[in-house]
Write a protein that binds this DNA or RNA. Structure first.
Ligand code: NAD
Ligand code: NAD
Lengths: 267, 267
DNA sequence: CCAGCTTTGTGAACGTGTGCACGAGTGCCT
DNA sequence: AGGCACTCGTGCACACGTTCACAAAGCTGG
């Protein structure tokens, strides 16, 4: 079993898809599927088969022509490439609505991101236990980060406090931040920041809804602008998509979208 | 005041940035700033100034050369383009950890996405009140969607139930879905789906952390692989970024990343 | 009214991402 | 052993997105 070093630098767009492949492959492994073709994997992931092959080719791990990929080996390779060979403890700043939901969610620990700690400024929150972890005061942040060797921090404070939270995280030694507050954080360029902004997601959906309404108005002059539900409910027929092409994605610096539109075929 | 129709189709990457500009411009408007340059807006949004100008040029709304853009007018134009001239009520499926956090979060209503309803299958959850909205049984979904004219649905059920939830939403008449479950939903191609997958975000961060560790190992042979915190905390000096370029983003069909990396200068 | 400064709008070059098409292996069946 | 069906790996063309650079346009002061 070759332990080749990551040969090329992996494109961000590919990095963003690897976790999806990984989840699917892990599921397949549980169902005792030993081998999988790029076609099948593409179908399950809702992407183009050529894209799957190209993505996987960056791993340097080879499939077998005429056969497909060995699921277990692929899982191993992707996990290694993503740095998932060991856990990455995370620390959450802000134990409000969202922080509590995150802490109470077991999915992170399962996927290798155990919650090493939750901190808050509110004395009323300190001491309460969320998802098995006791909320501690924010002054203990540095100590938690250092003793638990935390590299990843999550900002779940109100908007006004997000910049402060980020700075505290950076000072404490965190090098990657996942930010839920709808603000652009200012941090040293060496820090990797990713943003999840639900309002932005909804606004993008709104744009498409609005566009849908406008377009149909042009065709059927009757349609009101408010745009009632389209009620075309054809749920059964799944639309395997012709993958409407588009520029890349990736956690690029500028801004960039947040979610991905997908519409794959089910099994 | 010209009310020009949206001339060109707006690129997805731009659509994904407009909400960010909108938020910043709204804040500026509250601070009574009347005019803003692309440079300043770019700085606040953490993007390249040329990108800002190009993005805004798609709106057809004009700035004034030598001066900048009129904040209020830009806000109006962006809101119009994004379809934010009226509210878009949303319905949440799944009143668990996440559904409760979403319902309890006032930010959506403020931004034009009031929670029209929350539904769940669990009889124990039905009847409880979250964020001023009573949880109702999922069988009432269609009725809610139709009576409240809901176009956007949010899937916040466990993974196993997400596909079912999506199908119910589509049958009820919803045409856009925001999915929090880590699965690829199969829906008719006419339905717009966006996915927010926190585990994917963390795994992307993990990739970069791992890469950082590997790279530094090559340089300073000493460093352990586990990669303790880097503790280079230089918080004060904000890094206005040279916008490390990258391929596009956008809510493209395939998959695609979810969050964006940003690192702008603060005011 | 002109000179000089500022800032927009956009053409063009470049970089990234996507998807087709096909050569090149691999396994199976006869 | 040979033929055939299958699937990977990838070159290539094209689409999309980003950034630079600069002419056009507007403002201000004299
Ligand atoms: N709740 C959601 O569903 C949701 C959805 C989208 C975005 N968000 C964003 O997530 C963030 C958190 O939302 P929420 O609903 O959990 O808010 P919240 O008000 O319920 O919780 C915020 C918590 O942060 C704590 N806090 C305040 N200042 C702090 C500081 N300087 N350091 C550490 N902790 C501090 C508060 O004590 C509070 O417990 C907000 O920025 C919000 O915009 C939340
Ligand atoms: N909680 C988080 O912070 C978090 C983070 C990332 C992803 N997620 C994802 O979000 C989803 C929800 O997470 P959660 O923590 O809220 O889960 P949860 O178990 O707390 O809540 C799920 C809710 O959905 C309800 N439900 C189950 N089947 C349903 C159906 N068919 N129709 C309607 N409702 C149904 C359940 O009764 C429950 O109330 C999961 O897919 C999870 O992977 C959650």
């Amino acid at each position: 079993m070759p332990t080749e070093r990551p040969r090329r630098r992996i494109p961000e767009a590919t990095v963003a898809r690897l976790p999806v492949y990984l989840r699917i492959l892990s599921e397949q492994a549980e169902e005792e599927v030993e081998s999988i073709s790029s076609d099948r994997l593409a179908e399950l992931a809702g992407v183009n088969a050529a894209k799957v092959r190209k993505d996987l080719s960056y791993l340097g791990s080879y499939g077998t022509r005429g056969v497909g990929y060995e699921v277990a080996y692929l899982v191993y390779q992707i996990r290694r490439e993503l740095g998932l060979t060991h856990d990455w403890p995370v620390v959450i700043v802000g134990a409000g609505n969202l922080g509590q939901a995150l802490a109470g969610y077991g999915g992170f620990g399962e996927r290798g991101f155990p919650v090493a700690g939750i901190v808050d400024v509110d004395p009323g929150k300190v001491g309460t236990v969320l998802g098995g972890v006791r909320v501690r005061h924010i002054d203990e942040l540095s100590q938690i980060v250092q003793s638990k060797r935390v590299n990843i921090g999550v900002v779940a404070t109100p908007t006004a406090a997000a910049q402060d939270a980020a700075e505290r995280l950076v000072r404490a030694g965190v090098t990657s931040i996942l930010n839920f507050a709808p603000v652009v954080l200012s941090v040293p360029r060496s820090i990797e920041v990713r943003k999840v902004d639900l309002a932005v997601e909804l606004q993008i959906l709104s744009y498409h809804e609005q566009r849908r309404a406008t377009t149909s108005t042009l065709r059927s002059v009757a349609g009101g602008i408010g745009g009632g539900p389209g009620t075309n409910g054809q749920v059964g027929q799944v639309g395997q998509v012709g993958q409407g092409g588009q520029g890349g994605q990736g956690g690029q610096v500028g801004l960039g979208g947040t979610a991905a539109t997908s519409r794959p075929a089910s099994a």
